[in-house]
């Protein structure tokens, strides 16, 4: 019972970007993934990448409105990692035998699907932002990513007033949206 409560608290912390929750999850579960990946044709860095992706999957799952985890965090993370690693091995043309693992797994297909879809959108946004050039990229990141106000952005970027900054932000935003939707529609 106590363990269960503890898991709930961890998930709650995770949902709120609490670094202590993230740290606890790394401390208790990364070793298992490291062991699994390095025993199945992977390196330490591979394990790090895979585990980070699994953490993002879990993070985005706990953000959902009707979120429910029907198994232990450990089982969930392991299932995601196993699936991701299997895919990675197949992509590299290395995989041909069942992966060696003793841990139990649950079906995580739906979550992986969601992750992949969001991953594609994320990549498009990232590409679009990066092809904007300066000062557009930093201006929009300042506004959307770092939540800075127009006044602050105006002084940071040397605009005479907030209205000028707004004007510039509008132009940049239009360009970003154009880039984004051009790829978002074609997709895949």
């Amino acid at each position: 019972m106590k363990a269960e409560l503890n898991e709930q608290a961890l998930l709650k912390g995770l949902a709120q970007n609490d670094s202590r929750a993230v740290e606890a999850l790394y401390k208790s579960h990364f070793g298992m993934i490291q062991h699994f990946v390095t025993n199945n044709n992977g390196s330490f860095d591979d394990a790090r990448d895979i585990f980070q992706e699994a953490m993002i999957t879990l993070y985005e799952k706990v953000q959902l409105d009707h979120f429910a985890l029907t198994c232990q965090i450990k089982t969930y993370l392991f299932s995601i990692c196993k699936n991701l690693w299997l895919k990675r091995l197949q992509q590299m043309g290395k995989y041909s035998a069942p992966l060696s693992a003793q841990e139990e797994t649950v079906s995580v297909e739906e979550d992986l699907d969601r992750f992949e879809k969001k991953d594609a959108a994320f990549a498009i946004m990232d590409r679009s932002l990066n092809s904007l050039g300066e000062p557009c990229k930093s201006l929009l990141e300042g506004y959307y990513l770092n939540k800075k106000g127009m006044q602050e952005l105006a002084s940071q970027f040397g605009y005479t007033n907030a209205d000028n900054a707004k004007n510039q932000k509008y132009k940049c935003l239009m360009r970003l949206k154009k880039l984004f939707f051009a790829q978002y529609n074609i997709g895949e």
């Binding site: 953490m55 953000q63 969001k118 959108a121 994320f122 946004m125 959307y144 990513l145």
Partner: peptide
């Protein structure tokens, strides 16, 4: 989504 994922990463 982009911002959240970026911060969390």
């Amino acid at each position: 989504l982009y911002v959240n994922r970026k911060n969390f990463s």
